[in-house]
């Protein structure tokens, strides 16, 4: 080392000691930083376990009182303290199903437009505009749905549906009853607009990842734009598209405020999608602060647990699908 040669022995030991403490400090701060990041990671882990634990503990009284029949009972009576989750679960599934029936084809078609038809300079602006739909807070969808969309449905769309399907076997009960404006169809429709940007964004990303050679080969055979999309792009990206759809479904299942405004909060299971109903999240949002008595509160928390389990499964499938596509791309 050069210092040794220049400075002599006595000074070198001092410098070496200083150097050693400095290095030691560096090493310690290095370890401290790494451990800090590790603690943060454990905090994220603890968060999820905390959510699950809190929900399970909170719902014990309700599950003890009603057992598994909680899930299949329609009654929801705060006065007699008799609670069943069937109506909210049914409402959650029906509204989400309506949302997906509308949002999946529309979302895929928009992604098709953005990747195959849209002029290049327009792609980014349109994609951003669609994504802005995802940025609008859900309470805005709610207030808009209640004051603008529900009256519109009540006046123009619902009477038409009721008249058209009156007497058609099967469909007449689906579109039965007075046109309230609010109800499961309205909620499902608003959910569809809300999940549309998620489905579009992910489908567009996976469509863009299709190797151009595949598409060019199909075009070279004389395929039309639609045929290329249907027979080349879609089969190639199927897993990713399913992942995106599941992600959207996860959103729809758990969406609270927009639905709370327009669902009508009626704890009934009705075959008509025009009828008011309730969803798990809407029940909790509407009733939790007013719930008196441990059993009432606990039943609402049990609803939350059911919602969490359902969304957990759906989201886990979504992640698994998207991960599989990533590995395939590698």
């Amino acid at each position: 080392m050069s210092e040794v040669a220049l400075n002599g022995v006595a000074e070198t030991t001092g410098a070496a000691a200083a150097r050693a403490t400095a290095l030691n400090r560096l090493r310690l701060s290095d370890i401290a930083f790494r451990e800090l990041t590790r603690i943060a990671v454990y905090a994220v882990l603890a968060l999820l376990s905390g959510v699950i634990l809190a929900l399970v503990i909170g719902s014990v009284p309700a599950l003890k009182a009603f057992g598994l029949s909680f899930v299949v009972t329609e009654v929801w009576n705060p006065v007699t303290e008799n609670f069943g989750a069937l109506a909210p679960i049914y409402g959650t599934l029906v509204t989400s199903a309506i949302a997906m029936v509308i949002a999946v084809p529309v979302g895929l078609l928009i992604a098709f437009f953005l990747t195959a038809l849209c002029p290049l300079w327009l792609r980014r602006p349109i994609a951003i505009a669609i994504e802005l739909l995802a940025g609008i807070p859900s309470i805005i969808y709610g207030i808009w749905g209640l004051f603008v969309f529900a009256p519109f449905l009540q006046k123009y769309v619902q009477p038409f549906l009721i008249d058209t399907f009156d007497g058609v076997p099967g469909l007449s009960s689906l579109f039965a009853g007075p046109p309230y404006g609010i109800g499961m169809l309205t909620a499902g429709f608003i959910l569809a607009i809300m999940v549309l940007p998620f489905i579009t964004a992910i489908s567009r990303d996976v469509f863009e990842a299709v190797p151009p050679v595949l598409k060019e080969a199909a075009y070279g055979l004389g395929c039309t734009t639609w045929e290329v999309f249907k027979h080349v792009v879609l089969p190639f990206t199927r897993v990713g598209v399913i992942g995106g759809v599941m992600l959207g479904l996860g959103r729809a299942l758990g969406e609270t405020m927009a639905v709370t405004f327009v669902i009508g909060n009626a704890h009934t299971v009705s075959s008509s999608i025009l009828a008011p109903g309730t969803t798990i999240s809407a029940s909790i949002a509407n009733e939790f602060t007013e719930a008196v008595g441990d059993l009432y509160t606990s039943s609402l928390i049990a609803l939350g647990l059911i919602l969490f389990v359902i969304t957990f499964i759906v989201l886990a499938i979504a992640r698994y699908m998207l991960l599989r596509l990533q590995q395939k791309g590698r």
Partner: peptide
Amino acid sequence: VRFINDILLSAPSIVIGLFIYE
């Protein structure tokens, strides 16, 4: 943790409210 974080990212926000309430 990456998987769990993705779940938290899309978890229903009302459930987070219940958790903090508890």
